[in-house]
Design a protein around this nucleic acid. Sequence first.
DNA 1: GTCTATAAGGTGATAGAC
DNA 2: GTCTATCACCTTATAGAC
Lengths: 180, 180
Amino acid sequence: MQEIADEAGINKALLHYYFRSKEKLFEIVFQEAFSKFARNVNELLRSEASFDQKIDSFIENYITLLIDNPYLPGFVIGEIGSNPERLLDFISSRGILLDSFQEQVSEEYQKGNIRKIDGKHLFVNIIALCVFPIIGRPILKGLFFSNDNSAFDTFLLTRQEEVKRFIHSSLRPDIQNDDL
Amino acid sequence: MQEIADEAGINKALLHYYFRSKEKLFEIVFQEAFSKFARNVNELLRSEASFDQKIDSFIENYITLLIDNPYLPGFVIGEIGSNPERLLDFISSRGILLDSFQEQVSEEYQKGNIRKIDGKHLFVNIIALCVFPIIGRPILKGLFFSNDNSAFDTFLLTRQEEVKRFIHSSLRPDIQNDDL
DNA sequence: GTCTATAAGGTGATAGAC
DNA sequence: GTCTATCACCTTATAGAC
């Protein structure tokens, strides 16, 4: 609270006057941050784009969102550690359209467009590939680029294409000859 | 410190008697936890196995390690948030053989065994796919399996095969017909 | 609304009896 | 080695003056 008050150029008492408690302040900030993400996912799942396009634009939007809000993942993970129930309630109530995603995955398989894969795993894989480098930034930046910030930013940007390629490449059906 | 003392059935004073400070205690615990991981990576990179086998056994060992030590990732991420320099020093001094990995990746590409891919991205991808479900456990467990623990444990086990498949499938060279 | 002052409780760490 | 008592400090939160 002290650091937030300093940053805002006011004092702690005023912060409590506005937000009543640390808990309340937290909820407000968290909801705002998180709903960006939920909106992103759900709009996409409902859209009329092809499955490939959906995956591409999800990855693009999501990595851009993460680059613009680099503290969000740490924030969410802290919440996972301290109060997973509240977080889960929050996510569930926003209702991420997971069932819809799983259906779309199995449809694509039946159409022969992708190999067989469990939608749950694919969902986890996509999120993991996008989020992890943001979480691990301080370490990866050090290991890969001797702490050069702009080199790491470039890495994150090339990563957008790389993750798309990685996912699509992995989803190719096992036998490609049908198409030739 | 209070919680640790309670868990150990002693009191805070004795904890300080043994470990001098919270900082010292932390370092000891962290080193022990982390070196399990570093050993794992480095032994593997040095081994004589094929590239495919190395990836497979890394994924297998790593996910097993994470299932057995589910608090490790949260521990490391907390440290990333609070003291990334110390963590980076620690990792660098242990010397994960990143250069060796990158060389092996480009060799495999030149041999035509895999598609072109930046070793850094591949490294990040593999770790991400293994670690993320452990970090996100409380949320994923709720979203996917209505908080059924054993269902989620099964998910993590099937994930070992799934991640291997995902990686290998994604690394297949773009044109497969050469082999036929 | 905004501040100062202060309450109430928790934290890491130490002193000192046993 | 192990405990109790206590310290100096920090945190969230409130009371009350302006």
